[in-house]
C-alpha cells in the first residue's frame, strides 16, 4: 500500500526524538537505546536500574494518548503483515538487537551522533539487510 510522503512531520518527529535522547543524557547520563532500556526492564539487575527504565517506558507509552488529547488524533499504525510475520520478525529483532547491542535508537540516533565506530558499522548493516528483506518478501515472493 502507498503511504503519503511526510517530510515536515517526520522531520519534526525526528527533532523530538533527538530531544528525548539529549534529555536522557542530561538527566541520567544514558544512551537512549530502546533495546537496552527494554532488556534492562526484562533482566532486572537492581531496583534502581529498573525504576528509571519503567518511568521512561511509561512516558513513551503515554505519548499516543497525550497526542490524542492535544490534536484529537491517534498516530497511524497500519500493520500490512500477518501475525505470524510479526512474531517471526519480533523474535529476530530481539535476538539481533541484543547480539548487536543496539537498534535504530541506540545505534542509529545515539551511536551515529557520537560517531561511534560500532554504530557506523551497525547502522548500514541493518539498513541494507532490512531493504534486502523487504525486496525479497515483496518482489521475489510477491507478498
Amino acid at each position: 500500500m502507498e503511504t503519503a510522503f511526510t517530510p515536515f512531520t517526520s522531520f519534526g518527529g525526528g527533532l523530538a526524538i533527538g530531544l528525548g535522547a539529549v534529555l536522557l543524557m542530561l538527566g541520567l547520563g544514558r544512551i537512549f537505546g530502546a533495546t537496552g532500556i527494554m532488556s534492562g526492564a526484562v533482566f532486572i539487575t537492581s531496583r534502581a536500574e529498573l525504576s528509571w527504565r519503567l518511568a521512561l517506558i511509561a512516558g513513551m507509552v503515554l505519548a499516543p494518548v497525550t497526542l490524542f488529547f492535544v490534536t484529537g488524533q491517534m498516530p497511524v499504525v497500519n500493520v500490512p503483515v500477518s501475525p505470524v510475520m510479526i512474531v517471526i520478525g519480533g523474535v529476530i529483532v530481539g535476538l539481533g538487537a541484543s547480539l548487536g547491542s543496539g537498534c535504530t535508537s541506540g545505534h542509529g540516533v545515539c551511536g551515529l551522533s557520537r560517531l561511534s565506530v560500532r554504530s557506523l558499522v551497525a547502522v548500514p548493516t541493518f539498513m541494507v539487510t532490512a531493504a534486502i528483506t523487504v525486496f525479497i518478501i515483496r518482489h521475489v515472493f510477491g507478498a
Binding site: 503483515v81 517471526i88 537498534c103 551497525a122 547502522v123 539487510t129 528483506t133
Partner: peptide, 19 residues
C-alpha cells in the same frame, strides 16, 4: 555486532516495527 545488526535488519524488514 555485524551478525546481530544484520539479523536485526531482517527482523525489522519482516515485521515493520523496531523496539
Amino acid at each position: 555486532l555485524v551478525g546481530g545488526s544484520a539479523l536485526f535488519g531482517i527482523g525489522w524488514g519482516i515485521a515493520g516495527f523496531c523496539p
